[in-house]
Design a protein around this nucleic acid. Structure first.
Length: 210
DNA sequence: CTCCCGATAT
DNA sequence: ATATCAGGAG
């Protein structure tokens, strides 16, 4: 079967088993999603969601974060790991948003990438979930599953992103990535993938020798 | 390529 | 003990 055809079949099954696939981070506005996503680097969403309610009660907007004390912010986000980099990035990010973008999260890739600590993964997530702009969100799950499913043979997230863009219909991009992450957490896990129970095993060669 | 880094699963 | 978690910068 053609790889595009196979992707569509997988999406059909994903739509049935993950009908409500969306972002697992809790947020109430664009800035909160931007910051929660930065905190989610090498950290589970679950842990981020344990930290953000207090965080967003304490810092209510870009101005509050821009004027935060670095050491204090470090302590506020410590459980998410990489806390020194993340605290510095969040403050730098919010200063730029206040000074150059009128206090609002930019709505385009070019400007989002200017923000410290924001790469293509974070930018594509914000574009997709906030502004409705289709984007391939390549995180650790999407990269791993894409390789296992034969959608790419690259490790480089940017190459994975462009391979997926060629295979998937544009309007499916954002939702498909959320579904891949759900699937990665439930079946196609990094350590002990549960191929025998996988709903798309007939469309994937990865666990074929068991 | 390395570094950042705490928490949990295996 | 080690791998891994919705990455990004130098």
């Amino acid at each position: 079967m053609d790889v595009k055809q196979r992707a569509l079949e997988i999406i059909k099954i994903f739509d049935e088993i993950y009908p409500d696939a969306g972002c697992s981070l809790t947020y109430e506005d664009p800035l909160q999603l931007l910051i929660a996503t930065q905190l989610s680097a090498q950290c589970t969403d679950e842990r981020v969601n344990q930290v953000t309610p207090d965080l967003f009660r304490k810092y209510k907007n870009a101005h509050d974060f821009a004027n935060a004390d670095v050491r204090e912010l470090e302590q506020d986000i410590k459980p998410t790991g990489f806390f020194r980099n993340k605290a510095r990035n969040i403050i730098g990010c919010c200063r730029m948003i206040v000074e150059q973008f009128g206090g609002k999260v930019p709505d385009n890739m070019e400007d989002l990438l200017k923000l410290p600590g924001v790469g293509r993964k974070t930018a594509n997530l914000v574009l997709g979930d906030i502004f409705g702009v289709p984007g391939i969100v390549v995180d650790t799950h999407v990269g791993r599953l894409s390789r296992r499913m034969g959608f790419t043979r690259h490790d480089d997230p940017v190459k994975v992103e462009f391979d997926l863009m060629k295979i998937l219909p544009r309007e499916k991009w954002t939702r498909f990535c959320h579904q891949m992450i759900y699937h990665g957490r439930k079946y196609c896990k990094a350590r002990k993938p549960d191929c025998s129970a996988c709903p798309v095993k007939s469309l994937c060669d990865y666990g074929k020798d068991k």
